[in-house]
Design a protein around this nucleic acid. Structure first.
Lengths: 230, 230
DNA sequence: CTATTTATGCATCGATCACTGCATAAAGGA
DNA sequence: TCCTTTATGCAGTGATCGATGCATAAATAG
């Protein structure tokens, strides 16, 4: 697939220090590979549970080099999140963009999310880094806002696509695109939690399928139904 | 409402130490009130981000009393999660149990979850403690498993209700109750993330409405549809 | 070869973590 | 009243956190 070439989460650097444990200057380390390794670790363990010691070990570089190259743990995480999103973005939005109708786009988004959240075509960590990083970021208001903005981006893309579908006549003029986009976004967020809890790809695909199986019903007369309370 | 009387998350103890800062034995503290306060703090901040110092301050008791009464941070969290669930359980499952049909039950579950996740009828913390506590629990395998089990309980209840609906003739015999329960559980999990991100009650209610608006479609012929790929 | 640059391992910093020992003093039984 | 019980505030435990200073030695330029 197209995005595989940009993806090197699954190839952690071969720990350059393992061969030559002496001091002094070894080879210049691969910044991109180190960032990919850090991203993978943050993705799996989360921000707070990942220590600098964990990072240096996984990245295969020394503490000083880490700070020289990335500034601080916060800045490294921010860069990792950006790097993650650059890769992840292609996984879940490529088929979405090429879809002819709003419904096909939403289905592609959820289906490809199901694939990405269960390892993609290689051994990606399960779940969504941006979605699941919610908790445990107390005090780090800057990072917290960055993650929130990352998540909010998904909603904007969905809503824009649904709005366009209205112009195309693909969606009825009465459809509430905001609610539709929120719904799809919510389902994807729930899929991230399920993936983290061990859900396999089939389960998530089934969820995506069910979520949109009532599409014609949803996009048509939402307001006139569902008033029956128990 | 029925569950309000069991709920005292919103009444943190009035810091008994504020009046008498001297040493020595003050009044015996209210264990239940202290647990409620701890639960609320864990709920808001998560396990790792909540320190013992945070807890003693919020609970209004000393460090020694905390360990004497609850054992350790892990045990306190486990007890808090149990206390949380005891209260939360009534919020989201009461109308569910009384519902006449599977669809009404699922709708009640999602609607009441929407209410509970946005503060209930008092100022409960937003989101679901059990759902959102996923990340940041690396290494604490015991707590991790406890939280997973708590989340899994919701699925079991949903599936059992849907299975019963099959016997009642309420659901068609071809309906896949496992997939249905997974779907509803996934939507609720997604709502928890949205609530934590600031979603208001109306938004979550809309999500619940949309999620089940295609119910007849979903429960009927899932297998024969949704094969259109982009 | 020599001098400069640069990334390293290692030791260490102050802060904070979960947790505990100790002297103190209020509550409860005699 | 006296004595035991008990919960406390406070100091301090070792461990680990993110982050830094330093001497070292490989790479590079002249």
């Amino acid at each position: 697939m197209q995005w595989s070439m940009h993806n090197n989460f699954s190839t952690p650097p071969p720990s350059l220090t393992s061969i030559r444990p002496a001091r002094g200057r070894p080879r210049e380390f691969d910044r991109q590979a180190a960032l990919a390794a850090a991203t993978r670790l943050f993705w799996i363990k989360g921000y707070e549970a990942t220590s600098i010691a964990d990072l240096t070990e996984t990245m295969g570089i020394g503490t000083k080099s880490l700070y020289a190259a990335f500034g601080s743990k916060d800045e490294l995480y921010a860069e990792a999140l950006k790097y993650y999103y650059t890769t992840y973005e292609g996984l879940v939005w490529t088929r979405f963009r090429k879809a002819a109708t709003a419904r096909e786009a939403a289905l592609a988004f959820l289906q490809d999310s199901a694939i990405a959240m269960t390892g993609g075509d290689c051994d990606l960590p399960h779940g969504c880094m941006a979605t699941l990083a919610t908790v445990g970021s107390e005090g780090h208001s800057e990072l917290s806002e960055l993650m929130r903005a990352t998540r909010a981006g998904g909603f904007d893309i969905l809503k824009a696509r649904f709005d366009r579908a209205k112009s195309d006549g693909d969606l009825e003029a009465t459809a509430d695109t905001t609610k539709l986009a929120r719904f799809v976004q919510t389902v994807q967020s729930g899929m991230a939690i399920r993936a983290r809890d061990g859900a396999d790809r089939d389960e998530l695909h089934a969820v995506a399928e069910i979520a949109l199986s009532g599409w014609d019903h949803i996009t048509g007369n939402i307001d006139h139904r569902m008033q029956g309370k128990a």
